[in-house]
């Protein structure tokens, strides 16, 4: 069991919730007349985000303060909505996130389909994690979710479950990026079973005190804080426990550049980006030294003992 120090976030560090409540009030007022009457589906889907109850930060303590909310929701990689960083914030409003269910199947004794609202009712925790992209930028995000192992406990994986596969929603009518063959859709990610069951691995439904923004993977995504961001699939509709290592989207696209493990590691260079340092946004200089396992080595290094991480990158 890794050390999980509980520490409430000082309220000064996050964007005041009233700001969003006000924004919602304004939206509601604007929608009040015609839009709501016409069943404002777009407004509904674009996430009139609602506040979530959660235990205050239960993640290992870090010294950085969370990234500004508006930056975290305006600079995203979510190719289903376009390849530029500003595309998801612009285009993801079309995604209908309610109702939303996740199918949990594969090598389990009790396969089931679970609604996101049921996940929320299971009780949530806030986790302020470092978030490191393979493109050498990073943020600090106060996520809200529950340990993935609690979900696994519901379906009871069998001894044949060696890996877990996470599949993102595939809805071309709402996701303009799916028209291109940029990646093999649907976006698929995967973890080894012990990585998935690790207490740091978070099935995530919220951020900054509220439900997730669509561009950040609403209504439910994975967060695996010691791996590069692309390992944490967004807008998940299917979780499959499998025996063989799944072929993930980026490995299929370019296995020389993106490995299955993709642990944050300054010692293993990516062909495009040196991984020695990172730019903690919105800093100008990429002056921060990247830490092995993104600083979570104390908790996760033992998962990889005896493995050559230069081979298993």
């Amino acid at each position: 069991m890794p050390r999980l120090i509980s520490k409430p976030i000082p309220s000064s560090e996050i964007t005041p919730r009233e700001v969003y409540l006000n924004r919602r009030a304004l939206l509601a007022a604007a929608a009040g007349g015609s839009a709501l009457a016409m069943m404002g589906k777009a407004a509904f889907a674009s996430g009139l985000r609602r506040p979530l109850e959660a235990l205050p930060n239960t993640a290992p303590k870090i010294s950085d303060t969370p990234t500004d909310h508006d930056l975290a929701t305006s600079y995203n990689n979510f190719y289903e909505f376009g390849t530029s960083k500003s595309d998801p914030a612009r285009n993801a409003g079309t995604l209908t996130t309610k109702p939303w269910t996740i199918e949990i199947v594969g090598e389990v004794t009790k396969p089931r389909t679970i609604d996101v609202d049921q996940l929320i009712d299971m009780g949530l925790e806030e986790r302020i994690y470092r978030f490191r992209c393979v493109e050498a930028w990073s943020m600090v995000i106060p996520w809200i979710g529950l340990e993935f192992n609690k979900i696994a406990a519901l379906v009871e994986p069998t001894s044949r479950a060696k890996y877990v596969k996470f599949v993102t929603v595939n809805r071309p009518s709402e996701m303009p990026g799916l028209r291109s063959d940029m990646l093999d859709w649907p976006y698929t990610e995967g973890l080894r079973i012990d990585e998935a069951m690790h207490p740091l691995t978070l099935l995530t439904v919220g951020m900054y005190g509220q439900t997730l923004a669509n561009q950040n993977g609403a209504p439910v995504r994975m967060i695996v804080p010691w791996k590069y961001g692309f390992k944490s699939g967004k807008s998940i509709v299917r979780i499959e426990f499998v025996e063989k290592q799944p072929v993930t989207a980026w490995v299929a696209a370019n296995s020389r550049e993106y490995g299955f493990y993709s642990n944050v590691n300054p010692e293993v260079d990516h062909p495009r980006w040196t991984q020695k340092r990172e730019r903690l946004l919105p800093d100008f200089f990429a002056s921060r030294d990247t830490e092995k396992f993104n600083g979570y080595g104390e908790q996760v290094a033992s998962l990889y003992s005896g493995m050559d991480l230069k081979v298993n990158y």
Binding site: S74, Y75, K85, S86, W137, R279, L281, P282, F284
Partner: peptide, 11 residues
């Protein structure tokens, strides 16, 4: 006004 350039002004 680095906001003019969004979250990653250097990029």
């Amino acid at each position: 006004n680095t906001r003019l350039f969004g979250a990653n002004p250097a990029e």
